[in-house]
Simulated assay, not measured.
Amino acid sequence: MTFKIRKMRFSKFIACFLLFFHRIAPYLVQGTNFFFAQLSHRRKFEDDNGTSASDFHYLVTGGYRPATNELVKYAVSVRVGAAKEYFGTNHICGGTIISTRAILTAAHCMYSSRGSLYQARKLMVYAGTPKRLEQAPSTQELRVRQILPHPKYRSGRLRHDIGLILLKEEITTNEHAAIMSLNDKSPSAGLACTVVGWGTVIQFGPSADEAINGDVQILPNSICENLWNFNSNGMICAKNSDDSEVDSCQGDSGGPLFCNNMVVGVVSYGEGCGEKTSAGVYTDVYHYRDWIKANSAVGLKVSLMGLVMVLLLAA
């Protein structure tokens, strides 16, 4: 795989170089394959996911903050373990609320950097919290009952990168947390979409606080097929035709690509972030809709069984 460095202004190049050196130095000392760990998936691992308390202007690379973000209520922050420093520093991925008990995310978000599947009790989901580092009155902290990566997904691979997080308790739906519908038809080239997330400011850069939107368009498969490891059978790609720097990045993994008030894609991987000659790759929700529907209903079935047991014991 070849990684291309795009041209940039000299001042921006210096800033990126310093951020890059800050990130890569520990990996050079430890002998870790930095490029595979950081670029093959759009995520940051749990041991390096904090940021300063500063409020950066960008999050989804090249994105924007609307005066009122109507989409963030459908998104959640997926976190692992306890926050080492302060609230929100253990964020690893995003996700989408598709029912009061089910979160749609990427399968690779369910695995540690060592390739082992997380235990459900290690993960937490936070809904109704547009600021990653601030526990607002609307924030809902939700325990995980079960994690379900797609059965054909293999850790470290890119195919079938989709999964479900089933919750122990129901999400309280309101103006801060709401359910998004699954895409009901195959996405077409040119479709206008918005990616939402809490990812890094720029490639290798720090994560910011408040969720950000980035507007992109679905690209035709004839273009997407030129991307590294792209497969039109279950993947779509998207970018902003007017501004190539608009893109998802590390920490946005598992988060939603919204189009026409439906979740159409799940942030999966990319060759860098905001590269002029590349695009973000997303898992195609419509392709996996039957699997999603069948398995997201498991949480509902379990809760109904629990209700029956309670009624029987009370009788």
Rank of each mutant, 00 (worst) to 15 (best):
I14T: 09
V246K: 07
G50C: 06
V246F: 13
S232Q: 09
R132V: 03
T89I: 13
G272C: 11
R65L: 12
V263F: 04
T194W: 09
A75L: 08
N221Q: 06
K185Y: 12
G62F: 00
I92C: 13
G299D: 03
R23N: 08
T61F: 10
G128T: 00
D243V: 11
G299Y: 01
M124P: 06
R154I: 15
N33T: 02
S138E: 03
T105H: 04
C249Y: 03
G163K: 14
L59C: 12
T283R: 15
H176V: 08
A106D: 00
T129N: 11
Q203C: 11
A82W: 15
S99M: 02
K12Q: 09
S77K: 02
R157M: 09
D284I: 02
L123Q: 04
S54D: 11
C193P: 14
Q38S: 10
R9N: 10
V144E: 03
C259V: 06
L304I: 15
S207K: 14
E70H: 08
Q146G: 10
Q217S: 14
V125N: 01
W198A: 04
E175F: 14
D215P: 05
G128D: 00
F3I: 10
L104I: 03
A315L: 14
V246P: 05
L142H: 06
Y288S: 04
P220Y: 09
A211F: 12
L304Y: 06
R9S: 15
I103W: 02
T51L: 11
F34Q: 05
R157H: 07
A238C: 09
R145N: 07
S278I: 01
Q30G: 06
G31M: 01
A314L: 02
H160D: 14
P187C: 13
M235Y: 05
A107N: 02
L219W: 10
V285W: 00
S11A: 12
P130I: 05
P151N: 10
A297M: 14
G115Y: 03
A279R: 03
G270I: 02
D209C: 15
E85Q: 13
I165C: 14
I162T: 01
D247Q: 07
R79W: 01
T105I: 04
N69K: 04
A177V: 03
I212H: 10
G190W: 03
M305T: 11
K185Q: 07
L18E: 08
C224H: 02
S241M: 13
E271Y: 15
L158I: 10
Y286G: 14
I14S: 08
F45I: 14
G199P: 09
A178N: 09
S155A: 15
N260P: 06
V78N: 00
A102C: 07
G94C: 07
I24Q: 05
A208F: 11
S303H: 07
F21E: 12
Q30E: 11
D48F: 12
V285T: 00
R6V: 12
V72Q: 02
V144L: 01
C249L: 04
S207L: 15
T2C: 09
K131V: 12
S207W: 13
